[in-house]
Design a protein around this nucleic acid. Structure first.
Lengths: 303, 303
DNA sequence: CTGAAAGCGCTTACAG
DNA sequence: CTGAAAGCGCTTACAG
C-alpha cells in the first residue's frame, strides 16, 4: 500500500465518519469498556456525585457506565446484575447510602471485579467511604476555633456507623458535658431536639453540630422561631453539603463536604485497575472530608 | 444429536453458568441492547425518576442504559455522545430540566434514533413533557373546590415556557384580580413575594398556587413567621412533588406531580420502537399530571 | 515491512 | 430434521 493510498484511505475514513465497532473490538480483547454502577439510593443524593466522579475519571479511558437503581427487591436486583453481566461489563461499582448495609444482591462470586462505595463490601474487597471521624473533627474544631464552648450534637440514628463515628469525634473533643441527641434524619427531629434543649432549664449551647444538613436546617429554623439568632447566639454546622438544603437555609449552612466526586473518581480508577489485572490492596479506603464555610457559624477566623 | 445429549448439554450449560455473549450477538444483529440517557440535570431531580421509568420499561426487553450527565461544555458533550455511539447504543434519550432549552450537543444527524424528554428536540423528533396547563388547572381547581376565592400565583421566571403555561391556566380560571408574581426558583423569592403581598394594604389571598415546591415551602415558612396559619387562613399548593421538599414542609405540601416515571417509561418504549424500525408519530407528547394531596390546603372534599 | 489468514462467540442460511 | 459453513467487524500472529 503506497503512502498516498494510505492517506486517502484515512481521509475517506474520517470523511464518512468511520467509527470502529466497539462490540467487535470487545469480542477480541474481552473488554467491553463499560462498567456497571449499582445503587439503592433512589434520590441520587450520594450516587449522582459519585457517578459524576466515576464518569469524569473513566471517560478518558473510553469507558461508559451503566447506571442501575435497584430497590430492595433481591429478585429485581439479580435481573439487573445479570443484564450487566450479559453486556460483559468490565467491572461493577456497588454504591449505597451507608457503609454498614449491603445491597440486596449477592456480588460475591461474579466473573468481574467489584468495588464498593458507601455500602458494605464482601471480605477482601475494596471499599471507599468518607472519613466520618475526621469530618466531624473538622466541624467541631471549627466551632471551638470560633470560641464556642458549649457545643451540642444533634444527629441521626445511633444504628448508623457514621453516626457513631461522628459522635465519637465530637465526644473526644468536647467531652460529655452535654448528651449526644440521637434521632432520625428528618427536619422533624431537628425541631424536636431544639425544643428538648430549650425547654429544659439551665445554660444553653452556643453551638450545635448536626449529623446532617436536614437536621441542621431544621435546627436553624427552630432557633429562629425561638428568637435565638444564628449565628450570633448559636453557631450551627451541618454534614453532607447537600446544596439544595445547605444553600437554601437562612442563613446558609457551614457544613462538612464528603468529597463524593473525588470518591467516585477513586472508585472508577480502582475498578479499572482491577479490570486490567493490576494489583490493588483490599480493605476500606477512607477519604478526607472538608469544611465548606457559609454563614451559619459566623466569624471567619484564620484557619 | 440425541435427545438425551441435548438435555445433557443444556444441563451442563446452566450448571457452569453459561451466558451467551451479548457482544457477539450484537455484532450479528446490529443491536447492542443498550441505550444512552443524556442529561444536563446534575441534581437528578428530573432525570432520576425519568431514568427509573426507562429502566423499568426496558429491563424486560434486555436493554440496559448508559447514563451520562453533561455540563454545559459542548466539547465534553460531544465526547460523551461519541462514547455512546462507539458502544453502538440502539438509541439515545436526551433529557433536561426545561422544555424550551436544547442540550449543549448536536443530536440532529446521529445514526441512531433520539427521543427527547423535558428538553427541546429537533424538528420532526418525538418529545415528551408534562402537561403544565392541565397540572396547573388541577391545582387551581382544587383550591377553588375548597372554597378559596382570592388565589394568588407566585412562580418562577417568565422566560420558562412551563411558567407561562401554568400562569395561563391560572389566569383562565381565576382571572386577573391579582397579578402573577414572577421571580426565581428559590426559597428567597418565596419569602420576598409573601412580604410583597402582606406588606401591601388591602385584602389578602386565601390561597397561593406556587410555581414549584421550593417556592411553596418558603411561602409556608414565611406565612408561619407572620402568624398566618396554613392551611386554616391560607391554602398553599406546590408543583413538582419533590419529596424531599414537599414532605418536609410544615405542614407537608399538597402539590402537582408530573408523573416523571411514567414519562420515562413512555420515552423508553418509544426509543425501543424506533430502534426496531416501528413507525412513531413525531411531535410533542404531553403527559397528564396528578395532584398529590397532603396537608397544606386543608379540607378534603369529595373530588 | 506488507498483506492474507485465523479467530473472538455468536446466528443465519444452506447443504446433506 | 441435523450439522457444518459462512460471516458480523475487528485484531493478532504469521507467512511472504
Amino acid at each position: 500500500m503506497g503512502d498516498d493510498t494510505r492517506e486517502r484511505v484515512k481521509r475517506v475514513a474520517t470523511e464518512i465518519g468511520f467509527r470502529p465497532n466497539a462490540l467487535a473490538k470487545g469480542l477480541l480483547s474481552n473488554r467491553s469498556f463499560t462498567i456497571g454502577l449499582l445503587t439503592n439510593d433512589t434520590y441520587g443524593r450520594f450516587t449522582l456525585p459519585v457517578m459524576a466522579g466515576i464518569t469524569e475519571a473513566l471517560v478518558d479511558h473510553g469507558v461508559s457506565v451503566f447506571l442501575c437503581t435497584i430497590e430492595d427487591d433481591p429478585a429485581l436486583g439479580k435481573v439487573h446484575v445479570d443484564a450487566m453481566l450479559d453486556k460483559s461489563v468490565d467491572g461493577i461499582i456497588a454504591s449505597g447510602k451507608r457503609i454498614d448495609r449491603r445491597l440486596p444482591v449477592d456480588l460475591s462470586n461474579l466473573p468481574v471485579p467489584v468495588v464498593y462505595a458507601f455500602t458494605e463490601g464482601t471480605p477482601g474487597s475494596v471499599t471507599f467511604c468518607a472519613d466520618d471521624f475526621q469530618g466531624a473533627t473538622l466541624a467541631v474544631e471549627w466551632l471551638m476555633g470560633l470560641g464556642r464552648r458549649r457545643i451540642a450534637h444533634i444527629t441521626g440514628p445511633e444504628s448508623f456507623v457514621s453516626v457513631r463515628e461522628r459522635a465519637k469525634a465530637y465526644l473526644s473533643l468536647v467531652g460529655d458535658q452535654l448528651p449526644v441527641l440521637y434521632g432520625t434524619w428528618s427536619e422533624a427531629w431537628g425541631h424536636e431536639a431544639v425544643a428538648k434543649i430549650w425547654n429544659t432549664s439551665g445554660p444553653k449551647p452556643d453551638a450545635i453540630f448536626c449529623g446532617n444538613d436536614q437536621i441542621a436546617r431544621a435546627v436553624v429554623d427552630a432557633l429562629r422561631e425561638r428568637d435565638v439568632r444564628v449565628p450570633r447566639d448559636v453557631s450551627v454546622v451541618g454534614f453532607d453539603n447537600w446544596e439544595i438544603v445547605a444553600a437554601q437555609t437562612r442563613p446558609p449552612l457551614t457544613t462538612v463536604d464528603m468529597n463524593l466526586k473525588a470518591l467516585g473518581r477513586e472508585a472508577g480508577l480502582t475498578v479499572l485497575a482491577l479490570t486490567e489485572g493490576r494489583a490493588v490492596e483490599p480493605g476500606i479506603r477512607t477519604l478526607p472530608c472538608e469544611l465548606v464555610v457559609r454563614q451559619s457559624c459566623g466569624g471567619n477566623p484564620d484557619h
